[in-house]
């Protein structure tokens, strides 16, 4: 008598990637290429002014028009990909590392480590996310550096919560018990048995978080708290274009579309990854 194994079941379609994952990867890949090759792809420099050609609509010379300093909107968007991608990556990376470490330690060690970490987490979560980020940026002074510090100080809580919850469940899983019965040390149990299995929800969330960070980074830059003018950053561009909205809509519209497409790329990636890994967000 042979038993059915998972490998025999129809779920063997593992090699096949969800279309959302493909679409997300393609969109992100496109922006990464743009960010790397902005110098060659952009027809003009991002800060290159031409005061004789200000506020011009889309044309053959300026596909997406020019702004109030006569800067080429397309070139600024292409160069902006660098800053906005950087915000997405760094704005997620630091909270991810800090949060997972705290979550792992709090969940596995328990006791005082857990109590202190949880109180810290509760206090941080008692603030609306953006309000606390803005308050921290206020202290450090507006700028991208402050943005990263603020995101790291506030954003770790989501990861810590997810990973801690996973660790608490897995800590009593039989395979962890088996590892302890085998006489393996605490660090080995944590790194080899707990973390790789506990980190999946955090990885999926990191993609969703990247969407939020892209939106947040551009929103803060729009408010004047993130990237500073005249930097080519999409939020900054929208803020600068807002006053010319009635006459020159293109200054606002196109950077916004760029944000949407980058955010969608991460969003699709998050969905596809969740589907692939079998953890719904």
């Amino acid at each position: 008598m042979t038993e059915a194994t998972a490998a025999d079941r129809p779920a063997a379609a593992h090699v096949e990637l969800p279309p959302m994952l493909l679409a997300g990867t393609a969109l992100l890949g496109l922006w990464i290429v743009v960010a790397i090759g902005a110098d060659w792809l952009a027809p003009y420099g991002p800060l290159e002014q031409d005061l004789s050609r200000t506020l011009q609509g889309p044309s053959a010379a300026h596909w997406l028009g020019t702004d109030n300093y006569g800067r080429d909107v397309l070139s600024r968007i292409l160069h902006g990909a660098r800053l906005d991608l950087q915000i997405a990556v760094l704005g997620v990376l630091f909270p991810f590392l800090i949060g997972n470490l705290i979550g792992l330690l709090a969940g596995y060690l328990g006791g005082w480590t857990d109590i202190v970490a949880m109180r810290l987490l509760e206090v941080t979560m008692a603030f609306p996310f953006l309000v606390l980020v803005i308050a921290i940026i206020a202290v450090l002074g507006p700028g991208l550096g402050s943005l990263y510090v603020a995101l790291a100080l506030v954003g770790w809580v989501s990861y810590a919560r997810l990973t801690r919850a996973q660790v608490l469940v897995l800590k009593s899983a039989d395979f962890v018990s088996a590892a302890r019965v085998m006489g393996l040390g605490a660090w080995r149990v944590m790194w080899r048995h707990l973390l790789p299995n506990a980190v999946t929800p955090a990885v999926v969330f990191a993609m969703t978080d990247a969407v939020l960070v892209v939106l947040l980074g551009s929103a803060l830059s729009y408010l004047g708290l993130g990237a500073q003018p005249p930097a080519a950053e999409w939020g900054v561009m929208i803020a600068e274009g807002q006053q010319f909205l009635a006459s020159a809509w293109w200054i606002c519209l196109f950077p916004g579309l760029a944000i949407v497409s980058l955010a969608m790329g991460f969003s699709l990636l998050a969905d596809g990854l969740a589907e692939r890994l079998g953890t719904r967000p």
Partner: peptide, 12 residues
């Protein structure tokens, strides 16, 4: 909807 920046949508 998840990828729409609110401030930009507001402006539009």
């Amino acid at each position: 909807g998840l990828g729409l920046p609110g401030f930009w949508l507001g402006i539009l």
